[in-house]
Write a protein that binds this DNA or RNA. Structure first.
Lengths: 226, 226
DNA sequence: TCTTGAATTTCGAGTCATCAAAATTCTAAT
DNA sequence: ATTAGAATTTTGATGACTCGAAATTCAAGA
């Protein structure tokens, strides 16, 4: 069985690959994500390569092998199912479930995860809108525009929030930008680097560009649900 | 923070102290409980003593210090709340929750455990009838007679099952001896080393002495609930 | 092409938890 | 009192993971 350290490494490598497909994942990113020194990553990555979980190009970076990808997808599945479970069944706040799931993902049995999956009705996304890999390890990664890149004025629905920090999630919740909610982009200011939003509730909110880029949306064709 | 290994050591030491108060816990028992070699226990116990969690008498055994006892009670609390949670909320079978909780007990946050405690209505015993320590770390250890030592013929209620192995628990469930159920002891046979039971449901069951000693019961005064 | 600064790797070392084999200590029976 | 046998401790070693400091490599600009 892989140790929880190994699971953490492949999990973060997968995350990096998902945000930049094609590219090799450089050591530095892994070190930053796991909060360890670069020399530790170099050492660890070699043992991952020995176990056949990644391919390693010195001074280049790593890429998951099929077995590595499968393991990583399983960890991601556990993590995201746990997050949803903790929000929906246990009643924790979505801003606190990420760090909780971080620990639990290495401790839950396959049996328990299956039961949780069943309890939740085989969901396809977690509370942040991130897709949940299937039991077979397949991930569907749809590619939504952000509030920074979507058309002005058109009706939108929040699909996904791509920052798991508790602080950001609390802001999102306060602003009414949780996945599922409807809104439209009123205007963008190049100089102020802000985006002005009108929520379906009528409220107006403005976000900085960094924040706006983290909110992924689905343009709705008419008033219906695309 | 204590490592999960340290938590496991103090947890099992507490368990041994609970079944034999007064006595020092010998190394061998710990080694057997944790499935490690005696030399490992000796080494580990020294570091526990250095951390002030146990007092160690070479060739004698160990005893928990107040801080050690407190830590152990917290682990026990997490374990038992998790067992009850997995049975009542998640719907797992009570024969499988022990090993699941064994892993989760080291991964859950204080926050989550408090939430689970609340969700369950601050229960006082787990599915096996084992008492759940309070958040402050206090354990109430009532002392019930077993099916081997209780009066014959008198009405009884199953209080507790002191063997967590999945196999034994499945037997207990099949026989209708889960905590809460009523019964009486018909007879005991010295030579066959068996106990003959009559359940409130009317069924008759017989158990060997080893098994009977693991079922703790409460003698009921009349027909009411004592 | 040369140089320089950032990223990466190498090297030496340390912690934690574990084991097997050998030595020691204790206990209980003679 | 001796002593055999069980329990325990000592010793030396290993694997997994980590660090810091020094050396190396790479890529980009002069």
């Amino acid at each position: 069985m892989p140790t929880s350290t190994v699971e953490d490494y492949v999990k973060h490598i997968l995350l990096e690959e998902q945000r930049q497909p094609e590219a090799l994942v450089p050591m530095g990113r892994i070190a930053a994500a796991l909060d360890v020194t670069p020399s530790t990553v170099t050492a660890m990555v070699k043992t991952l390569a020995d176990s056949g979980l990644v391919t390693y190009e010195p001074y280049g970076g790593v890429r998951l092998t099929p077995p590595g990808r499968k393991l990583a997808a399983h960890v991601q599945r556990r993590h995201r199912l746990l997050e949803l479970f903790l929000v929906q069944i246990v009643g924790l706040d979505w801003s606190e479930v990420h760090s909780e799931a971080e620990h639990l993902e290495h401790a839950v049995s396959e049996r328990l995860i299956d039961r949780i999956d069943e309890l939740l009705g085989h969901p396809s996304v977690d509370p942040h809108g991130d897709p949940i890999p299937s039991a077979a390890g397949v991930v569907r990664e749809p590619d939504f525009p952000t509030l920074l890149l979507c058309p002005l004025g058109a009706p939108l629905r929040v699909e996904r929030v791509s920052d798991q920090s508790a602080e950001f999630l609390r802001l999102v919740e306060r602003s009414g930008l949780v996945p599922g909610n409807g809104l439209s982009v009123e205007s963008r200011s190049e100089t102020a680097e802000t985006v002005r939003l009108r929520l379906d509730s009528g409220e107006e909110v403005s976000l900085g560009w960094r924040a706006a880029a983290k909110i992924l949306v689905q343009p709705l064709v008419a008033a219906g649900k695309a």
